[in-house]
Simulated scan of single mutants.
Amino acid sequence: MGAAKPNEGRVTVLDSLAFLCELAMLVILAVSGWRIGSGLALQVILAVLFPLVAAGVWTTWMAPGAQRRLANPGRLAAQIALFVIAAIIGIGAGLVPVAVVFVIVSAVVFGLGSRRER
Protein backbone atom coordinates (compact mmCIF):
# COMPACT_ATOMS: atom_id res chain seq x y z
CA MET A 1 0.00 0.00 0.00
CA GLY A 2 1.31 3.47 -0.93
CA ALA A 3 1.41 6.53 1.27
CA ALA A 4 -1.91 8.34 1.65
CA LYS A 5 -2.33 11.64 -0.15
CA PRO A 6 -2.74 14.66 2.16
CA ASN A 7 -6.38 15.34 1.15
CA GLU A 8 -7.39 11.72 0.56
CA GLY A 9 -10.90 11.09 1.86
CA ARG A 10 -11.67 14.80 2.27
CA VAL A 11 -14.25 16.53 0.10
CA THR A 12 -13.08 19.95 -1.03
CA VAL A 13 -15.03 22.88 -2.46
CA LEU A 14 -13.65 21.95 -5.87
CA ASP A 15 -14.94 18.37 -5.45
CA SER A 16 -18.38 19.74 -4.58
CA LEU A 17 -18.36 22.07 -7.60
CA ALA A 18 -17.32 19.18 -9.86
CA PHE A 19 -20.21 17.09 -8.54
CA LEU A 20 -22.62 19.99 -9.17
CA CYS A 21 -21.31 20.26 -12.74
CA GLU A 22 -21.95 16.53 -13.23
CA LEU A 23 -25.50 16.90 -11.92
CA ALA A 24 -26.06 19.99 -14.09
CA MET A 25 -24.96 17.98 -17.14
CA LEU A 26 -27.57 15.32 -16.37
CA VAL A 27 -30.28 17.95 -15.91
CA ILE A 28 -29.35 19.75 -19.14
CA LEU A 29 -29.44 16.45 -21.02
CA ALA A 30 -32.81 15.47 -19.53
CA VAL A 31 -34.41 18.85 -20.27
CA SER A 32 -32.87 18.86 -23.76
CA GLY A 33 -34.18 15.38 -24.48
CA TRP A 34 -37.64 16.46 -23.38
CA ARG A 35 -37.52 19.60 -25.55
CA ILE A 36 -36.09 17.84 -28.62
CA GLY A 37 -38.59 14.98 -28.60
CA SER A 38 -41.72 15.29 -30.67
CA GLY A 39 -44.60 13.60 -28.92
CA LEU A 40 -44.81 12.44 -25.34
CA ALA A 41 -43.28 9.00 -25.88
CA LEU A 42 -40.16 10.35 -27.61
CA GLN A 43 -39.85 13.16 -25.07
CA VAL A 44 -39.79 10.67 -22.22
CA ILE A 45 -37.41 8.30 -24.01
CA LEU A 46 -34.90 11.06 -24.83
CA ALA A 47 -35.21 12.70 -21.40
CA VAL A 48 -34.21 9.37 -19.83
CA LEU A 49 -31.79 8.11 -22.51
CA PHE A 50 -29.55 11.19 -22.81
CA PRO A 51 -28.58 11.38 -19.12
CA LEU A 52 -28.43 7.59 -18.84
CA VAL A 53 -25.83 7.37 -21.62
CA ALA A 54 -23.79 10.21 -20.11
CA ALA A 55 -23.93 8.61 -16.65
CA GLY A 56 -22.84 5.28 -18.13
CA VAL A 57 -19.84 6.84 -19.85
CA TRP A 58 -18.95 8.77 -16.69
CA THR A 59 -19.29 5.75 -14.42
CA THR A 60 -17.19 3.55 -16.70
CA TRP A 61 -14.25 5.83 -17.49
CA MET A 62 -14.27 8.97 -15.35
CA ALA A 63 -15.73 8.35 -11.89
CA PRO A 64 -13.19 8.22 -9.04
CA GLY A 65 -14.12 4.60 -8.25
CA ALA A 66 -14.26 3.38 -11.88
CA GLN A 67 -12.31 0.18 -12.52
CA ARG A 68 -11.37 1.41 -16.01
CA ARG A 69 -10.79 5.05 -15.03
CA LEU A 70 -8.84 6.98 -17.63
CA ALA A 71 -5.60 8.62 -16.58
CA ASN A 72 -5.08 12.34 -17.08
CA PRO A 73 -4.79 14.10 -19.47
CA GLY A 74 -7.07 11.66 -21.31
CA ARG A 75 -9.70 11.74 -18.57
CA LEU A 76 -9.80 15.55 -18.58
CA ALA A 77 -10.18 15.56 -22.37
CA ALA A 78 -13.00 13.00 -22.15
CA GLN A 79 -14.73 14.96 -19.37
CA ILE A 80 -14.58 18.20 -21.31
CA ALA A 81 -15.75 16.42 -24.48
CA LEU A 82 -18.76 15.06 -22.61
CA PHE A 83 -19.55 18.53 -21.25
CA VAL A 84 -19.21 20.06 -24.72
CA ILE A 85 -21.52 17.41 -26.20
CA ALA A 86 -24.09 18.11 -23.46
CA ALA A 87 -23.80 21.85 -24.15
CA ILE A 88 -24.24 21.33 -27.91
CA ILE A 89 -27.34 19.24 -27.27
CA GLY A 90 -28.57 21.95 -24.89
CA ILE A 91 -27.97 24.64 -27.48
CA GLY A 92 -29.86 22.57 -30.05
CA ALA A 93 -32.75 22.37 -27.59
CA GLY A 94 -32.80 26.15 -27.13
CA LEU A 95 -30.96 26.31 -23.81
CA VAL A 96 -28.25 28.59 -25.18
CA PRO A 97 -27.34 30.77 -22.15
CA VAL A 98 -27.55 27.84 -19.73
CA ALA A 99 -25.46 25.58 -21.97
CA VAL A 100 -22.76 28.20 -22.57
CA VAL A 101 -22.37 29.05 -18.88
CA PHE A 102 -22.42 25.33 -18.02
CA VAL A 103 -19.63 24.37 -20.41
CA ILE A 104 -17.40 27.27 -19.36
CA VAL A 105 -17.84 26.64 -15.62
CA SER A 106 -17.36 22.88 -16.07
CA ALA A 107 -14.16 23.31 -18.09
CA VAL A 108 -12.71 25.63 -15.45
CA VAL A 109 -13.72 23.40 -12.51
CA PHE A 110 -12.41 20.19 -14.07
CA GLY A 111 -9.31 21.94 -15.41
CA LEU A 112 -8.47 23.12 -11.88
CA GLY A 113 -9.23 19.67 -10.49
CA SER A 114 -6.94 18.10 -13.06
CA ARG A 115 -4.09 20.42 -12.07
CA ARG A 116 -4.58 19.47 -8.43
CA GLU A 117 -4.20 15.74 -9.21
CA ARG A 118 -0.74 16.09 -10.74
Rank of each mutant, 00 (worst) to 15 (best):
L20C: 14
W34Q: 02
G65M: 10
S16W: 11
G65K: 12
A71G: 14
Q43V: 06
G113V: 07
I85G: 04
K5M: 14
I80H: 11
S32E: 02
S38Q: 15
M25W: 06
R115Y: 12
G33L: 06
Q43K: 11
A71T: 15
L23D: 10
V31Q: 05
W58K: 01
P6E: 07
W34N: 02
G92C: 03
A4L: 13
P51Y: 01
I88G: 09
A54N: 01
V53I: 14
I88N: 05
Q67L: 13
V57E: 13
Q79P: 08
V53D: 07
P97S: 11
L49H: 00
L76T: 07
L46V: 07
N7T: 15
L112I: 14
F102W: 01
G39H: 08
A71L: 14
A99W: 05
I91T: 04
G90W: 02
K5S: 13
A18K: 06
P97K: 11
I45E: 04
V84F: 01
G111S: 03
L26D: 03
A47Q: 07
V108R: 02
S114T: 13
A63W: 04
L70S: 03
L52V: 12
V84E: 06
G94Q: 03
G90T: 02
A3F: 10
G94C: 06
I91Y: 01
S38P: 07
A55W: 07
L17Y: 00
P6F: 06
I88P: 05
V100E: 05
C21E: 02
L14T: 00
E8M: 08
R10P: 08
W61D: 06
L70G: 07
R35T: 08
G9I: 06
A71E: 15
S114K: 06
L26W: 06
Q43E: 07
I88W: 05
A41K: 09
A4R: 13
E8Q: 13
I80A: 13
R10G: 09
V27T: 04
L40A: 15
G39F: 06
A3H: 14
A107Y: 06
P73A: 05
L20K: 10
E22S: 10
V98M: 13
M25R: 14
A93S: 03
R35H: 08
L26V: 02
N7P: 08
R115M: 15
I36T: 09
I36M: 10
L29M: 03
C21F: 00
G65I: 09
W58P: 02
L40D: 15
I28Y: 00
I28G: 00
G37C: 14
